[in-house]
Amino acid sequence: GKMTGIVKWFNADKGFAFITPDDGSKDVFVHFSAIQNDGYKSLDEGQKVSFTIESGAKGPAAGNVTSL
């Protein structure tokens, strides 16, 4: 299901971020390909987002990341 959280930090050079979920679970890795914005895919620290949890090769990662 959809979860919500806050972007903890975003590394534009490497194209990934971490989200701190609102439910208090541990921070979730985000690859820029999961960001659903049109055009430039970036996130801002402190931004509120919704996302799903996908199981990636290196463990859980956020999918369908959308700005709220």
Rank of each mutant, 00 (worst) to 15 (best):
S50M: 10
V7T: 01
G15R: 09
S50N: 07
I6G: 01
G59N: 13
G15A: 08
A62P: 12
L43G: 01
H31N: 14
I35H: 03
S25E: 05
N37S: 11
D44Y: 14
D22V: 04
G59Y: 14
L68C: 15
A61H: 11
G59W: 13
G56V: 11
E54R: 02
G24T: 02
A34K: 11
K2N: 11
D13P: 04
G39A: 09
G1I: 07
T20D: 01
G1F: 08
D38P: 08
A17E: 00
V30S: 00
A57C: 15
M3W: 05
V7H: 01
I6Y: 07
I19A: 00
I53P: 08
I19G: 00
K41W: 12
G39L: 08
V28P: 00
G63C: 15
I6H: 05
T66S: 10
P21A: 03
K26F: 05
D44I: 14
K48Y: 08
G1C: 15
N37A: 11
V28R: 06
V49F: 02
I53W: 12
G56P: 14
K41P: 11
G56A: 10
D27F: 04
D23E: 03
D13I: 10
K14N: 02
F29I: 15
A61T: 13
I35G: 03
N11S: 10
D27T: 07
P21N: 02
M3T: 06
G1R: 07
D44A: 13
I19T: 00
A12C: 15
G5I: 01
K8G: 02
A34M: 14
F10V: 15
G1P: 09
E45R: 09
P60M: 03
N11P: 01
E45D: 05
H31G: 07
G46K: 02
K41D: 11
W9L: 06
T4Y: 09
P21Q: 02
G46P: 01
F32I: 11
T52V: 11
G1H: 10
F16K: 01
W9H: 06
D27Q: 05
G1A: 10
I19P: 00
D13N: 05
D27L: 05
E54P: 02
S50Y: 12
I6P: 01
L68I: 15
K41H: 13
N37C: 14
K8W: 03
T66G: 14
D22A: 06
A12Q: 11
T66W: 00
N37F: 10
S33L: 08
S67W: 04
D38L: 09
W9K: 05
E45P: 09
Q47R: 07
G56M: 07
I53E: 04
F18I: 14
S42F: 11
G59R: 10
N11W: 07
G5Y: 01
P21Y: 04
F51L: 02
A34T: 10
H31T: 08
G46C: 09
T52L: 13
